[in-house]
Design a protein around this nucleic acid. Structure first.
Lengths: 240, 240
DNA sequence: CGTGTCGTTGAGGCCTGTCAACCTACGTGG
DNA sequence: CCACGTAGGTTGACAGGCCTCAACGACACG
């Protein structure tokens, strides 16, 4: 029997986008084909690049194809706060991840490829009622996810914040078909976790060591794996 | 000369909604009239009520008409994190403020009136292309605002977090026409600020006293006023 | 083998939380 | 008119979680 992923992956590099959109509504075969066949310009970015303005001449919608990036806000003193991670299939300059005016930028956390799709094409696609509903649900969901993060930052101590971040990140990766199981290695460095939780890398290191001793996390050194999703969720300390 | 507000206020109780929508696109006279004339059921809520499910039989869109409320997430131990404030004109159960499944609720912070508009009517309104764009911009903006809050919580210390919150709150109140100037008294108690910034009410009290000594805030006791918006913004510590 | 990246560990200090008491303003009822 | 209760704000003493600074280790790569 051919696994489900195979049929999706046959759609090509934009299949992560199809998977993502499919989470928010039933896509018609026509929509799936249209997206799968979209013409786009591939653009590659290197690690540690910060992008404040994506080229929009001609007007383009950027979709991440592979890699890892994030949106972040900077403090006056240069520190960085990651406000959301960007995964393959995520929009990078519109809809749920439209950077805030001049204060938010895109940081590339691992070698990343983006697909620049002419905005006109995409706007046309969004004209269909079902696709419009899907996009609206997408953005609404992003708002809700951001508010959950606000909850975690406000309510949790260091241990709780880290637990929440890892739980949500792994959950998202699985749902989006980017890893097979939540116990697979996560592509996060301790610095990323620090910048996303508002903690220092030193303290993140200590907390991760503690979570490993508690058998909530596994892996050594640079390999970060979740051992106990249920435990992680309860440590996050939110009343779900 | 008749001030602008007068013409808007003539639209009746739903004028805050018209003002809000107008921030995200040019509304046609027809749209304004339609919204101003919407039939709705008024529902009043008392302070300290927590609403986990708004009645949706029949399906309704809830719009706040007057008062003050917030969305909040609870910790396992019962503490509350305010994830966003709800002001007159805000949707309360759809679009930019759709509560997250079972984990988020609406807390009434001051006597509040909501307008329950039949969902069908509203869905019909959103069918027009321009209004659809307005709604999409609304939700996108809410996502961006939430991410800005994440930035403040992650980057700022107590002083910075409070400064950010008050700056954004006052700014929003002014833009929405709910107060005349950012130096007008704000309808926030110190407890609200504590729950929105993830601090304790005791520490919020000390920080507010400090900001008053620094002439950034004014007012005594229960009266909270901003004296210096520019100073507040720079204290927030975000690279704008 | 030098260099850079990322993780790890220790010592010390500050920011913020916790606990507790008290104060003012205001409304209610005898 | 006063006793009382409640809501919200204010202040002090103390503890602890997290930050800062610093050094070192493991590993990849040219």
């Amino acid at each position: 029997m051919i696994p489900f992923e195979t049929t999706v992956l046959k759609r090509g590099p934009l299949s992560p986008l199809i998977v993502k959109l499919g989470l928010y509504g039933q896509l018609s075969d026509h929509d799936v084909d249209t997206i799968g066949d979209l013409r786009y310009t591939a653009i590659d970015y290197q690690r540690n690049q910060r992008i404040t303005t994506l080229s929009v001449i001609p007007p383009c919608v950027y979709v991440m194809v592979s890699g890892l990036a994030c949106l972040s806000v900077l403090a006056s003193d240069g520190r960085r706060q990651i406000t959301r991670f960007l995964l393959p299939g995520d929009f990078c300059n519109v809809f749920d991840a439209e950077p805030i005016g001049s204060i938010e930028g895109i940081d590339i956390l691992a070698p990343t490829r983006m697909a620049a799709v002419p905005a006109g094409v995409f706007h046309q696609l969004g004209a269909s009622p079902t696709m419009n509903d899907v996009l609206m649900a997408l953005v609404t969901n992003a708002t809700a996810a951001a508010r959950k993060t606000i909850g975690s930052l406000g309510l949790g101590n260091a241990r709780g914040r880290i637990a929440f971040l890892l739980y949500e990140f792994a959950q998202t990766m699985v749902v989006r078909g980017l890893i097979g199981a939540p116990t697979d290695p996560l592509p996060l460095r301790q610095d990323h976790i620090a910048d996303a939780t508002g903690l220092t890398n030193v303290h993140v290191n200590r907390m991760i060591a503690q979570l490993r001793r508690d058998r909530i996390l596994s892996g050594n050194g640079k390999v970060l794996e979740i051992a106990d999703m249920t435990g992680l969720r309860s440590i996050a300390g939110i009343k779900w």
